[in-house]
Amino acid sequence: MKALEIKGLRKTFRSNFMLKKYRVLKGIDLEVERGEIYGFLGPNGAGKTTTIKCVLGLLNADGGEVLVEGRPVAAIDSRRCVGFLPENPYFYDYLTARELLTFAASLFDLPPPAVRERIGALLHRVGLSGREDLKLRKYSKGMIQRLGLAQALINDPDLLILDEPFSGLDPIGRKDMRALIFSLREAGKTVFFSSHILQDMEMMVDRVGIILDGVIRRQGKLSELIARSTQYYEVACTGIAEGRLAQIQSNYAVRDGHYVLTLASDADVNLVVESIIHNDGRIIAVTPVKMTLEDIFFSEMRNGQ
């Protein structure tokens, strides 16, 4: 069973008295395996938040199927094993952190003695110990984001859905959030998070889905996507006369006292390496230059235009 399965999800928004239609999701298909960190990558307006809201039953989809831990999203119980952190979360500013978490726990029917213990542990985990009785109106944005994660974890969920969890965080906050997400994976949780920040994705996710204009354009293991995407090879060599090198391969440069050749395929690499060695040259390095997630993302964006 998958942690999350979405098949053919479609959603249209209407405005101007229902006359104007905006097709936001045009058939989303994605699968999230248990225990992985899945990155949902896309530019602003691509449909990330709309997809998440359909998964949580906050928006009614026009069509398609969503299964959370094997249960259809229409069943309210499907949310029992889910934790959710919305984008730019806002909580009742007249509450304290402890009161907010107690309120969140009441929505899950959790027994009070267990809740008290869990609240203390969660506040400690997100670094808010000692601030539990401070009114939320006095919290900074970073503290609110941490508290948002704590309330998403109150039910010890199997699947955690985070909508732009790094939004508005400073570098320390981002580092802490990353560490928290990694610790959740280590604890066997599934984390599904959306972001438009490529750096976060590249550092964290096991698998990634790229959404553009309401459609999933690429999906798979990040390592495989990148491995499949070798752009070219660089061969660094030395000890060969420049005239001979120019006869073997005209596309080269001099870098740090070495010749660096740029080759298009691994077949070319074999031929060129053999020729260099045959001409008394020495191979220093053969480096496949792969696409980064950023390259893949922008290549998909170009293809889509």
Partner: peptide, 14 residues
């Protein structure tokens, strides 16, 4: 308006 409803209805609350 303040979207606090998202925090409630994303939990098992009808």
């Amino acid at each position: 308006e303040k979207k606090t409803v998202l925090n409630i209805l994303s939990k098992p609350v009808s």
